[in-house]
Write a protein that binds this DNA or RNA. Structure first.
Lengths: 216, 216
DNA sequence: TGTACATCAGTGAACGCGCGTTCACTGATGTAC
DNA sequence: TGTACATCAGTGAACGCGCGTTCACTGATGTAC
């Protein structure tokens, strides 16, 4: 808990040439990249400060405010991008097979892989309390990327029910159970120490158990 | 992200009379109580500062250092106490029935209830990255309360296997799966917004699904 | 029973730090004439 | 083709803040004689 000493007067790690006129948005993307890199390195959202970001990008702190209103909305922008990536991964997993159950299994595996390979973004997305409605599908409101993610899951679970492979339960409830399972796995793998010794096939085993439980 | 204004020159909320000689340890307990209360109110570990704790207890910040080396070890002390409480709850659930499977089910329900009723302590215990070995049973090393918690689970799962109600799998692997399931549920319920609308019986349903999956 | 004294449970002020954010500015770049 | 000028992409310095922690101290409390 001792404050870490960083020499803030040191030159920026990357020296950055000013963007040409009309190309100011380049910095925006660079900032998002830098934040994700810092999240990975430090492993803590609160350790990523505006000053650290600016330094990593090779720019002074006020420059960030040309592209984001404040720190919160910057973090929000990063969440959005990550959710989009995750949704793409989930769709790929789903579309890689015709079998609904196998599709769900692959989605589960892809989910856990995405989370464990991007621990800090995952933490931000899924393990930090959000005040806004990130996950819930609220009718009549423009769905966020978080909504889309959950919809993908509900769709696939519905497919499994309709195919007669899952018991005819409430698809939403079944989806929550599936989500809990893969989230629990991901969250624990991220949180436990490096040498905790999770078995290699734990994801597959967990998914098997859960799906067997949902089967007719 | 604007810094919150707290008038630190304001008088302490509780005015505290100095402990009598030899009774200095009272403050230690009061500090732990105050921290847990603050955790509940603010919902964020980093929002609980030494100054805020001191103010809540009715004491000046340096007084805390008479009882704890630093902030980290204070947080650690709180984790220990919480783990002890949780383990007690788990043991009660286990001992409330003879049936191994029903015992495990009740342990699962008790776990989720403990977590959702103590969201911030749970967050601290289970959703924050720990550098030290909190959960793993390491042979030859004094087990922490976190170790004990996991042992209780492994024991009960083993009982279910020996009773022939679970498939004969690796008890440790099966325990990890059970843990993932209840943790996932707890963590998501803590993290999603108030109005997310989790079904009342979701814990029971999830436990049923998972146990059915582990059954012969 | 009275009193000097060591001890204990704190206090008060200060330290240096990093933080998010603001504001007045600068200097290169493209453009209108 | 040359030049004045508006605009854009930033800079540099500073703001007030809360943080964890240290250090010299104080004053009540129990105890030895």
């Amino acid at each position: 808990m001792t404050p870490l000493k960083t020499d803030s007067s040191a030159p920026a790690t990357t020296s950055r040439s000013r963007a040409r006129r009309g190309e100011g948005d380049k910095l925006r993307e660079d900032i998002i990249d830098a934040v994700e890199k810092l999240l990975l390195e430090t492993g803590d959202e609160s350790a990523v400060s505006m000053r650290a970001i600016a330094k990593a990008v090779g720019v002074t702190p006020p420059a960030i405010y040309m592209h984001f209103d404040d720190k919160d909305s910057m973090i929000q922008a990063i969440c959005d991008r990550r959710f989009r990536e995750m949704n793409e991964v989930l769709r790929e997993a789903r579309d890689s097979t015709e079998d609904p159950l196998e599709g769900l299994r692959r989605m589960g595996a892809a989910y856990v892989r995405f989370g464990t390979e991007n621990p800090e973004p995952y933490r931000l997305l899924m393990m930090t309390k959000h005040t806004h409605e990130d996950y819930k599908v609220t009718p009549g409101v423009e769905p966020t990327e978080g909504d889309v993610a959950f919809s993908l899951l509900v769709e696939q679970v519905t497919r499994c029910i309709e195919a007669g492979v899952f018991k005819e339960t409430d698809p939403l409830e079944a989806s929550l159970i599936v989500w809990s399972c893969v989230h629990g796995l991901t969250a624990l793998m991220i949180t436990t120490p490096e040498n905790y010794g999770w078995p290699d096939d734990i994801t597959k085993r967990a998914c098997d158990v859960m799906m067997k439980g949902l089967t007719l």
